[in-house]
Each structure stands twice: as structure tokens, then as C-alpha cells.
């Protein structure tokens, strides 16, 4: 039984095909929600609303902020000074988020991880991808970031310094990636489409225009 689990492909986000009762935790989810509703602590709409809210959050909000910063030097400064305020400026609801934006340059490339759990700017970018929460990423990126980046298809020259940020407190990080060459003529919408989620975490770069 143990060996079968070892052979199974890793799936750290929680839906591994295992021999144990697959229904145990889903049942626990249903029961906890039902008890809280029964006791009048939450309403059925509360959870639904939160599901919707989270479904509406994804990296494209971060991409919009990056594209604006590439176009507007004033916004870039405000973004670097206070990421959450800069998100609110674009009409995004980020709750109590405290966001530090790290700017990549030709000399410095930033990468974000939380080695102790899964801290991520959820209030802006939504639920983190499975690999961000995985043992492999959390263990290795602090020690061998260049190897992890190359597994994501990202090669950086040795002349570039990598700064890995272990985000373990009640503040969150996002990377402001380097603007790709040859994008001077693009408008903000076209620029935003070059910004990938991975580039906001630092395991990737912004895409080159077609």
C-alpha cells in the first residue's frame, strides 16, 4: 500500500489517488460548513460568495498593474511604494493585503517562495498553483534557484543576481518583471498580455511580443 503511494505521481494540491477513504476530507468539509450554518455563525451565502470572489481573482490583475507600471512612471513609483494601494487605484478589491512589489532589473532578478507553508498574494492573484505549495519548490528554490528556474524554462545569465524572498510573515510579495525588448509601440492591454503568472512569482520572464 505504501509503495503504491510512492509510485503515484506527486500531486501536492490535494487530490492524489490514494487507497484511503477519498471521501473523508470532503465529508469533513461538508460537515464543518453545515455545523457553522446550523449554529448561525455563518450563512450559506457566505461560503458561496467567497468561492465566487476567489474565482474572480487571478494573475491578470497583477499583469494589469505591471503593464500600467511599464507605461506610467508615476504609477511605477506608487506600485513600488505600496503595492496594495496601487492595486486599489486600479479598482481591485484586495482586502487587508499588504503587498511589496520587487522590481526586476538587468542586474537583479527576484523570486518568491514561502518555505514554511504557502504564503502568496491570494487577495490579488487568487489561489496559488499546486507547484508553489509543493515540497519540491519550497525545499529547493531557496538553495538552487537557478536549477528551479531552468526547470521552468527560464535561463538567466550568470551576471544577473538572483534574490529569493522567503515570504513567511503577514505581508506578501509580487515581482515586477522586466519589460521585454521591442514593446515600445504596444498599448497597455497588449503589454498586460505579455505578463505571465510565473513572471509575477519570478520563476518566469514576461513573454516577448509575437
Amino acid at each position: 500500500m505504501k509503495e503504491a503511494q510512492v509510485d503515484a505521481s506527486p500531486d501536492p494540491a490535494g487530490s492524489r489517488d490514494k487507497s484511503r477513504d477519498q471521501g473523508y476530507y470532503p465529508r469533513m468539509q461538508t460537515a464543518v460548513e453545515a455545523l457553522l450554518i446550523l449554529k448561525g455563525i455563518i450563512s450559506p451565502a457566505d461560503v458561496e460568495r467567497e468561492v465566487e470572489k476567489m474565482a474572480g481573482r487571478d494573475y491578470r490583475s497583477g499583469a494589469r498593474m505591471v503593464a500600467r507600471a511599464w507605461q506610467d512612471p508615476g504609477y511605477r513609483l506608487r506600485l513600488l511604494a505600496d503595492g496594495a494601494a496601487a492595486a486599489r487605484e486600479l479598482g481591485m478589491d484586495v482586502g487587508q493585503l499588504r503587498l511589496i512589489v520587487l522590481e526586476n532589473t538587468a542586474q537583479v532578478h527576484h523570486v518568491i517562495v514561502c518555505t514554511l507553508c504557502s504564503c502568496y498574494p491570494r487577495a490579488l492573484l487568487g489561489i496559488p498553483p499546486g507547484w508553489y505549495k509543493s515540497r519540491e519548490y519550497r525545499s529547493r528554490v531557496v538553495r538552487e534557484p537557478r536549477a528551479i528556474l531552468s526547470e521552468f524554462g527560464t535561463q538567466l545569465p550568470e551576471s544577473v543576481q538572483i534574490r529569493v524572498h522567503d515570504s513567511i510573515a503577514d505581508q506578501r510579495y509580487m515581482v515586477l518583471p522586466l519589460r521585454p525588448e521591442g514593446t515600445e509601440a504596444l498599448d497597455e492591454g497588449a503589454l498586460a498580455s505579455l505578463v505571465t503568472r510565473d513572471s509575477l512569482i519570478g520563476v518566469g520572464l514576461a513573454r516577448l511580443p509575437e
Binding site: S9, P10, D11, P12, A13, P129, G130, W131, S134, R135, E136, Y137, S139, R140, V141, I148, E151, F152
Partner: peptide, 8 residues
């Protein structure tokens, strides 16, 4: 740890 599989 092993290779970082891109679990999405």
C-alpha cells in the same frame, strides 16, 4: 527534493 513538476 525531486524535480519541480509543474502541477497546475
Amino acid at each position: 527534493a525531486g524535480c519541480c513538476e509543474r502541477d497546475e
